[in-house]
């Protein structure tokens, strides 16, 4: 039986962006050896906050801390928010250790989304590395639900090893959808791996692209995104204006008050995390910016 929650009625509550709202963990499932997907529902019975693909929440674990985590679920599934979390430190470990019925504090959603409205009528090329597929999954859900609004959907996904690939069943199902191509690769295959081996940019050779009709959404380690952008711009002729990427920096507040996530003139939390590459040209790859 889930615990009961009380929210004292305080008039400032609605206007305080720093105050978490209580949510229950509705389900937890293991994706890989270190990565879990959690779904949460509001504790007070009101519908979960809506979100746009690419946005993130701040997830708070009682007494442990708060983390910015991208929303990885279906934007049209009302009443529930889903996150895919890789355990890399004490706070993420605490987060993935939650079980059904536990509660979390949730703030948000925050940040800029993938421009799904603006890119209607185009081929959408989604390129992800590792956990970077998580913030792109809501965009894939959206495109598949609104299939006629877009032409081709191409997903290029790279992970370190076969055991690090997220959403394996979904990747296979997406690949069977009409006008959809899903290509995966790993940095190191095992003896039983019969798929592709190599960094994600090696997948480009399998693609036929229409650069003037293609928009790219990228999320992964910065070094990977830089190589992908070089491939798109220099070898494929995709314009900087048609390339979008999701950035990561230290974040404490998510609303532009704490200063941690600054990236040149931008706050990743409110100007991003999704940026058009045109805006980041000249910043990306600058050491210690």
């Amino acid at each position: 039986m889930p615990p009961t929650l009380e929210q004292p009625g305080i008039s400032h509550a609605a206007s305080d962006p720093m105050r978490p709202e209580p949510y229950f963990v509705a389900s937890v499932s293991r994706e890989t050896h270190d990565t879990f997907t959690l779904s949460v529902e509001p504790a007070n019975g009101v519908p979960a906050a809506g979100f746009a693909p690419g946005q993130f929440s701040m997830l708070y674990v009682f007494g442990v801390g708060e983390l910015p985590i991208s929303i990885s679920g279906d934007p049209e599934q009302a009443g529930r928010l889903t996150y895919t979390v890789r355990s890399v430190g004490p706070a993420t470990q605490a987060l993935v250790s939650r079980v059904t019925g536990d509660w979390l504090g949730v703030r948000g959603p925050f940040g800029a989304a993938w421009p799904l409205e603006a890119v209607r009528g185009k081929d959408v090329l989604i390129i992800a590395g590792g956990i970077g597929l998580a913030p792109l999954r809501p965009a894939i859900y959206h495109i598949l639900r609104h299939r006629d609004d877009y032409v081709r959907l191409i997903v290029l996904y790279g992970a370190r090893s076969p055991g690090d690939l997220l959403y394996k069943k979904e990747l296979a199902a997406w690949g069977r959808s009409p006008d959809t191509q899903v290509l995966t690769t790993v940095d190191y295959g095992g003896v039983n791996w019969r798929g592709r081996v190599g960094v994600v940019t090696t997948l480009f050779r399998h693609l036929r692209m229409h650069p003037d009709k293609t928009v790219a959404f990228i999320c992964g380690p910065e070094i990977m995104m830089r190589y992908v952008i070089t491939e798109l711009e220099e070898n494929r002729g995709v314009l900087a204006n048609d390339i979008y990427l999701s950035m990561e920096r230290n974040m404490k507040c998510a609303v532009g008050f704490c200063g941690h996530c600054q990236y040149g003139p931008y706050f990743i939390c409110k100007d991003g995390p999704v940026f058009c590459y045109q805006k980041l040209r000249g910043l990306l790859g600058k050491h210690e910016l």
Partner: peptide, 19 residues
């Protein structure tokens, strides 16, 4: 202090500090 949280058995209170 921005937020104060109390856990009492199964119930949880999220309080804050700026009324």
């Amino acid at each position: 202090q921005l937020v104060e949280l109390r856990r009492d058995g199964a119930s949880l209170k999220i309080l804050h500090n700026h009324s």
